[in-house]
Design a protein around this nucleic acid. Structure first.
Lengths: 143, 143
DNA sequence: GTGTTTGCAAAAGCTTTGCAAAGTT
DNA sequence: AACTTTGCAAAGCTTTTGCAAACAC
């Protein structure tokens, strides 16, 4: 599905800024802040405004095109991956890393087939792992 | 364990402000923001400063006495419950509700006995359920 | 008494808003 | 042509900071 089509499906007009921002988010695996997205696209779009990045990300989130992720570091982060997955928060490096495990996903789905939550329209369920990187220069490994 | 002892154990001097703030958090199940804590204790402590509430909550979180919880609504929230538990975020009411289920807890503990995460010192693992309340005037029910 | 903590006010982030100009369909 | 979106600057939040006075041990 093209950027254009995804915007159309979300009822958003296909402006150059929106396509640039959505493409940047698709490419960016680090759950960037609006400021970070701005830095990423500024070189190729020198006239873009930071406020537009903020507003655009917010409208994407409202439309369900991306997920807004709250972070302990005090700014919002955006995630182009809208499938079911969890996050690893490294507090000492301010990184947010995707965590997906098929078995865990099944476990959670099965669990909530039995336990029902009433009076709530569930958007998503995510497992959050909070911690500190031991060696800041190395990756977090999942095995 | 008394408020005094908990502060001592965290290496924090037992000031009147700290005991008031810790007691308020203990009593408050709604994961209050610093502003909200300030409103709660202000009547009985008219000279307390909002900055002190911010700084105190932050030092409690650093000491592991409470948990800092990031929220989509743009402010931080604090949680006196430091045991393993999850959260239900109602985006339309800005409520954060505790979610604890014995079975789910076991499931998650067992799961992470098998799947290891390397180069990360895990602080806690929480399951977050994001959604909107259907009837804003009624409680979310868990069964 | 020594060192830490508080209150105040000011400053520093992060995010939203108002409005004219530009863009989209 | 009608309506929406953008850029800019200003305003509005939340949170942190500097420093003298007050407090804890």
């Amino acid at each position: 599905m093209t950027l254009r089509d995804r915007l159309a499906a979300a009822n958003l007009k296909a402006t150059h800024q929106r396509m640039t921002i959505l493409a940047a988010l698709d490419d960016c695996k680090i759950h960037p802040s609006p400021e970070k997205v701005y830095e990423m696209i500024k070189p190729g779009n020198p006239t873009i405004s930071l406020a537009t990045v903020y507003n655009t990300l917010e409208s994407f989130a409202r439309a369900g095109l991306v997920n807004k992720v709250a972070s302990i570091s005090g700014n919002m982060r955006y995630d182009a991956n809208i499938g079911a997955h969890g996050h690893i928060y490294c507090h000492n490096t301010d990184e947010i890393i995707d965590y997906y495990d098929e078995d865990l996903n099944m476990l959670i789905i099965d669990f909530f087939k039995k336990k029902k939550i009433g009076n709530l329209k569930i958007k998503n369920i995510t497992l959050n792992i909070n911690g500190d990187k031991l060696d800041r220069n190395k990756e977090v490994t999942i095995k």
